[in-house]
Write a protein that binds this DNA or RNA. Structure first.
Lengths: 241, 241
DNA sequence: GCGCCTGGGTGCGGAACCGTACCGGAATTC
DNA sequence: GAATTCCGGTACGGTTCCGCACCCAGGCGC
């Protein structure tokens, strides 16, 4: 587990790190919600109809091209939120966001959130800083997609997932990972074998177990770390109050 | 020229599309400034020391990895600004931004801008929506880097540059383009030959001339367009007032 | 005029990854 | 327990792009 995500299990870190005043402001408006696997949180070009703050599970943000090519650009769990367009004073999402690993969390109406943002500059500031951290993550993804070898990108992706799950076991199929990374399914099979051969993970049938996190970080050192450090600086230890 | 960038030549579109009240607010604080080629506008991990609004020229935002791998993630000209971290209520940049093609524009002190953002929610909103458009552009870059062939990525990049120059001739070396795209210099040579062969551009010695813009767009259709449409929706025709 | 630097053209071997396809075992369904 | 679906292992030819290297031409300084 990364240090910046050390909020208690079953909390959303963005909410948890708010000042008590801001938390008191937003908490009454948050509705508990199940987030089943595959649930669509926002769709490109459409208005955001609910904003979600996961407590568990993992959400993926995917850029989609006209010709149906798609690739994951960002990923979040208890550290983040969907519907960032609202924070940006827009209303339409530009990417697709869905639940990649089931969980639960909170939802809030966009209009309500907008009102709260107007009411509390510190709340707005907090969420803006989160979006800034996401931009850093997306930038790193662009870099990694451009320069990284498959094995390195795979290691980075597994790490980012692992960061957001309080468990070394992850339910992930090669097929799914291949879509997220924008590579062949067979490529992922080969990549996981490489990582298995080095004793970093163990995989079988829709299950990947992280054995050596430090080793994975080493494998992905070119691509992993900078956005995570940004996040910790922007959110983790920067609690207003 | 794209429709969303149709502000008068020698204006910054972000400033130009402000409400008259907001423009009156910010204009006294803007200092005219030359933006020579290669000028560093912000550096990763360092505080933003000035925010720039170009009127002419092109700026590049580049993600840098620890091992010195780098790749351009975003690009802006008279349509944008540097120092978006300030708009996001942060102070440190996470990427490197520099002038790729010389120009001129305005600068403003971060503290001054911060004060203005607090003072005018509509100003803040306007700039936030610009950052949202940039996120869309970065996402598309990640997608393009992951899936796109060199020729297609090259076409997209030339289009994005062309959008921000009021001229079909662009001073660009293969070497420079190769760094921006994160590919070999020789690869760019081959790619430009392909585009030349199709009659879309003409290139010689540090000069690239766009001959057939529509053809270029066709060549890059998978990657070009969506972020530009987002930008136009968020900024171009959404003038408060 | 000469040398030098910059920018671009070209070639070659090899690595990485693609598209496609086939197969087998594991889980699920009825 | 038979059928079906899901998931992963494997193979093969082809393409794209890399790393490296060498050379040539234009432009500049001296």
């Amino acid at each position: 587990m990364r240090k910046g995500l050390s909020c208690p299990y079953g909390q959303n870190n963005l909410i948890y790190t708010l000042s008590s005043a801001d938390r008191a402001l937003i908490e009454p408006e948050l509705k508990p919600v199940k987030l089943p696997k595959g649930m669509m949180l926002e769709e490109p070009g459409k208005p955001v109809d609910l904003v979600y703050f996961p407590k568990t599970g993992v959400g993926s943000t995917v850029a989609v091209a006209r010709n149906d090519r798609r690739i994951e650009v960002g990923l979040f769990g208890c550290d983040g939120m969907s519907g960032t367009a609202i924070v940006m004073q827009s209303d339409h999402a530009s990417n697709e966001t869905f639940m990649q690993i089931a969980g639960d969390g909170f939802s809030i109406e966009p209009d309500t959130l907008r009102a709260l943002l107007d009411q509390s500059p510190t709340l707005h500031r907090h969420l803006l800083r989160y979006v800034q951290a996401m931009m850093s993550q997306i930038s790193q993804t662009a870099l990694s997609n451009g320069h990284g070898k498959l094995e390195e990108r795979l290691a980075r992706w597994l790490l980012m997932c692992h960061d957001r799950i309080r468990n070394d076991e992850m339910s992930l199929t090669h097929e799914f990972i291949s879509v997220m990374l924008g590579v062949r399914r067979a490529g992922v099979t080969v990549g996981t074998h490489m990582l298995e051969g080095k004793g970093l993970i163990r995989a079988n049938r829709g299950q990947i177990v992280v054995l050596d996190r430090a080793g994975l970080e080493n494998e992905a050192w070119k691509s992993y770390g900078a956005p995570e450090a940004d996040h910790d600086r922007l959110i983790g230890y920067d609690q207003p109050d």
